[in-house]
Computed example of a mutant assay.
Amino acid sequence: MNPIPGSVETFARLVGPEPDDIVAEMDAKAETEGFPTVGPAVGGWLRLLAGLVDARRVFEFGSGFGYSAYWFAGALPEDGEVILTEVDAEELAEARGFLERGGYADRARFEHGDAIEIVERYDGPFDCVLIDNEKDRYGEAFDAVRGKVAEDGIVLADNAVSAGSIEFEALSKLLSGVDVETTDATRGIADYLRTVRSEPAFETVLLPVGEGVAVSRRLPDHRA
């Protein structure tokens, strides 16, 4: 169960940017198929945060059919780049179609395969990173990209509060230092949050919309 009230999500949608026709189509697809996306409330935050850091390069660990990448792309300059990664070739092809129809394909790169292996092929810096792959691999994703995040760049981790088999009460106890039996996903999120909170090169806050987004900013003059 998601402890973030649904009323917050609904109100955030009312306050946030109006989804365009492509986003509306992707939302309808997600609802029909039960496909998890960040949703328009979080999507609006992705676009806003990317704009605030003047993002030119974005890397995604897990892109699905391109929902979050579409929101990011709207904040990028014409010569900007969002790198999508996805292990499902069919979903990646759908992502390409959505971004083409939205006019953003020229600033997108579509990588098929494991995101943690793919990021090793790229040099930084990245201004924005979205971690949204397997929950028990969030820490592995952060380790792979931490040194490639630009100063004042941001790392966003979706599902920092809820998703699938994440048990919120157990997550809270783990972060408080109490060890409990729980799911691999819950433990993976807890390990990730402890890692970014203890990393002196980053400062981290929680954005309590959607299923929770941990936002970590790379501090200037710190080696990651």
Rank of each mutant, 00 (worst) to 15 (best):
M1Q: 15
N2R: 14
T10P: 01
A12D: 07
A12I: 01
R13Q: 14
L14T: 15
V15M: 03
P17Y: 06
P19Y: 09
P19V: 04
D21A: 12
V23S: 01
A24H: 08
M26C: 05
A28G: 00
K29G: 00
T32M: 06
G34L: 08
P36W: 01
T37K: 08
P40D: 05
G43A: 03
W45F: 13
L48I: 11
L49C: 08
V53M: 06
A55N: 12
R56Y: 03
R56I: 02
R56Q: 14
V58A: 06
S63L: 03
F72W: 08
A75D: 05
E78T: 10
D79A: 02
G80D: 03
E81D: 15
E81K: 11
V82R: 10
L84C: 02
D88A: 09
D88C: 06
D88H: 02
E91L: 11
E91G: 04
A93V: 05
A93N: 12
R101F: 13
G103C: 02
G103L: 10
A105D: 13
R107E: 05
R107A: 08
A108K: 05
F110R: 01
G113P: 04
I118D: 08
I118E: 01
V119K: 02
D123A: 05
D123S: 11
D123P: 00
P125V: 03
L130T: 07
L130D: 04
L130K: 06
N133W: 04
E134G: 06
R137V: 00
A141Y: 07
D143K: 09
D143M: 12
L156D: 12
A157R: 12
A157K: 14
A157C: 15
D158P: 01
D158I: 05
V161R: 12
S162W: 15
A163Q: 12
S165W: 10
I166L: 07
E167W: 03
E167G: 05
A170Y: 06
A170R: 02
S172H: 08
L174I: 04
S176Y: 07
V178W: 01
V180T: 14
E181C: 05
T182Y: 08
T183R: 06
R187H: 00
A190K: 09
T195Y: 06
V196Y: 03
S198C: 09
P200T: 15
A201L: 07
V205Y: 00
V205C: 09
G210H: 00
G212N: 11
V213R: 11
V213D: 07
A214P: 00
S216K: 11
S216T: 15
R217I: 04
L219P: 13
L219S: 05
P220H: 10
R223P: 13
R223F: 06
